[in-house]
């Protein structure tokens, strides 16, 4: 896919994307540094009370934090701008008079956004694990079933937990692409998914939704809770993937239709 490669070529030159990579690389290490300097514990977050006991707790704490607002922002900074920036720079005429069709350009831009999102997720996961191990070492982790998980198993479960964030993250990528296409504004494309993410969290937090909260795109960010246990349960994970796929498919279908049918003025 030449469009994907071309878009990635463009993205890596953007200072915003470079800053994002640096934040993902250094952010977790900074959190570890701050936690190392203070005696207080982030007890309000799952595994927060264990950060000084096991190196596998910190990556899960960061995963919990990131799910609340970090992940939507992580992907919308790229995907929310990838279509609207062409409007902003007046580059659609040049871009769309190449050998590639509009549909190919759409697919390429979406794939490039998804690749960047997945890459940033992997980078943050790895540096978070590294930061945890530097902070507290590779010691057994008390899981959410109350039993201790051996370091090897804990490492696998931490990696798997971060991997569960991929589906809803890509759901937000699709949402950001949709807002970027429809609004033609990078402000809406970038801020929109973050605001919608917060609204969804607020809806879930106010309660009363019960099981209906499972259709929100933010709920799957918590599906890893079922994994870090002696006997994992996979129900929320399966549902989370399904919900993310439905959100993503709807957003992308609408975005594609709008882009292919719109007059570029």
């Amino acid at each position: 896919m030449s469009v994907v490669r071309a878009e990635l070529f463009k993205l890596v030159e953007q200072s915003r994307v470079r800053v994002l990579v640096i934040v993902c690389l250094l952010g977790p290490l900074l959190v570890a540094f701050v936690l190392d300097r203070q005696s207080g514990l982030p007890k309000d977050t799952l595994f927060g009370r264990h950060v000084h006991e096991s190196g596998y707790a910190l990556p899960l704490v960061i995963l919990g934090f990131a799910g609340t607002w970090g992940f939507p922002l992580l992907t919308s900074l790229v995907a929310g701008d990838i279509f609207s920036s062409e409007d902003g720079h007046g580059t659609w005429p040049a871009l769309l008079s190449r050998s590639r069709t509009r549909a190919q350009v759409f697919t390429g831009k979406v794939l490039a956004s998804a690749l960047v999102a997945a890459g940033l997720l992997a980078v943050t996961a790895m540096t978070s694990l590294l930061a945890g191990l530097v902070l507290s070492g590779s010691t057994p982790l008390v899981g959410l079933s109350g039993t201790e998980l051996a370091p090897g198993r804990a490492a696998v479960l931490v990696a798997a937990s971060w991997a569960t964030a991929l589906a809803p993250l890509l759901g937000f990528t699709a949402l950001a692409c949709l807002l970027s296409v429809v609004s033609r504004s990078s402000v809406i494309g970038v801020a929109g998914p973050v605001v919608l993410g917060l609204v969804m969290q607020l809806l879930a937090l106010l309660g009363g939704l019960g099981d209906a909260a499972n259709v929100l795109l933010t709920t799957p960010f918590g599906s890893w809770h079922g994994l870090v246990r002696e006997h994992p349960f996979y129900g929320p994970l399966g549902q989370g993937v399904l919900v993310s796929v439905v959100w993503g498919a709807i957003c992308l279908a609408v975005a594609r239709w709008v882009l292919l049918h719109r007059d570029i003025t």
């Binding site: 463009k10 953007q14 200072s15 062409e86 720079h89 007046g90 580059t91 659609w92 005429p93 040049a94």
Partner: peptide, 11 residues
């Protein structure tokens, strides 16, 4: 060609 503004990526 170009229309209205000569578009380019400033970065």
């Amino acid at each position: 060609g170009f229309v209205e503004v000569p578009g380019a990526y400033p970065y």
